[in-house]
Design a protein around this nucleic acid. Sequence first.
DNA 1: GCCAACGTTGGC
DNA 2: GCCAACGTTGGC
Length: 155
Amino acid sequence: MNYWLFKSEPESYSIDDLANEKKQTACWDGIRNYQARNMLRDDIKVADKLFFYHSNAKPTGIVGVCKVVKNAYPDHTAFDPNSKYFDPKSSKENIRWVMVDVQLVEKFNGIISLQQLKVTIGLEDMMVCRRGARLSIQPVTAEQWKIVMNISKKL
DNA sequence: GCCAACGTTGGC
DNA sequence: GCCAACGTTGGC
């Protein structure tokens, strides 16, 4: 099992939106970056866990935990001309973008801000703490996962 | 709203 | 295949 961090702008989709979904489950659509796509397709599997991260927010940070409940499958928004994620170069014969389904496991009692992550011993190398880590899906090590979960229990 | 850091595109 | 121009992300 592997650990990840998924970013979402809460204005477009927040952890509360996920909490309000049927079965608290949703498809994570709209990933349009090849590196992130490759991780979704090749590495992110059912039962993997991920941090739900609010980007472009006040404050920005980790707000909860989800698990993967469905392996990668075609992202249908790429075929929909009315979607902002529409990709004319993608087709059902030539699948370019995929997504997984995630289910909410736990919403933290607060947020672990990026500021806090950055000053936490042991998280120096966490991708989200580093400058220019713009990837919307990032791997998290087991050790980093443990440290963040410990912080979350004190919120 | 600014801007640094990337990623993508397309002409050559 | 190079690289300049352009677009996007996302913290601040």
